[in-house]
């Protein structure tokens, strides 16, 4: 008898395992997906969120812009408010900075510390950033403020997801 001849019994057991495995996978896959899916769902990060800020009205003074967006938190969606500091730099380019301090995450304010005019100031441990978001050495933060990518749509500013400043 040649070795690779398949007996009836072998044939049956192969087919049954194959079919059984297929059926099991058919049952298990959705279960696994249900369990894992909410976590894996990409957080529409490429989406830009509309704000109430008219691009034409942006000046060279950093201004608070609040916007609302939906946050996917694994199991439920909630409405969150985000904030950006927005201004036009010397070249007339829009800059939108995240207000979240890179030290331990407090919210920074523009020009709120009298001793340090024209800086972003963090009230928690005195963190300082220059207007372009660069952290001032000697203060606790160890990185520049995150930057929002933006687009202009129908004259209004739309913001993306804040990212660490490039070249930092």
């Amino acid at each position: 008898m040649s070795k690779n001849k398949v007996s009836r019994r072998q044939f049956l057991s192969y087919t049954l395992t194959g079919v059984g495995g297929f059926m099991a996978a058919g049952m298990l896959m959705p279960m696994v997906r249900f369990a894992v899916d909410p976590v894996l769902q990409p957080k529409a990060s490429s989406d830009f969120i509309p704000t109430q800020q008219k691009v034409a009205d942006i000046t060279d003074v950093p201004t608070r812009v609040d916007f609302k967006f939906e946050q996917q938190d694994a199991w439920y969606t909630s409405e969150e408010t985000g904030t950006a500091w927005v201004y036009k730099d010397d070249k007339g380019e829009i800059v939108a900075l995240s207000p979240v301090c890179k030290h331990l995450g407090c919210v920074v304010d523009w020009n709120s510390d009298k001793a340090n005019q024209n800086h972003f100031y963090c009230p928690c441990h005195g963190g300082l950033y220059t207007k372009d978001g660069t952290n001032v050495p000697g203060t606790p933060p160890f990185a520049p403020l995150d930057v929002y990518p933006y687009i202009e749509k129908d004259g209004y500013l739309h913001l993306g997801k804040a990212e660490p400043k490039k070249g930092a």
């Binding site: 301090c101 331990l104 919210v107």
Partner: peptide, 13 residues
């Protein structure tokens, strides 16, 4: 509600 906001502002301290 207030405590949520307060935490958000000063969470580092």
């Amino acid at each position: 509600l207030l405590s949520i906001q307060l935490e958000r502002q000063f969470r580092g301290r």
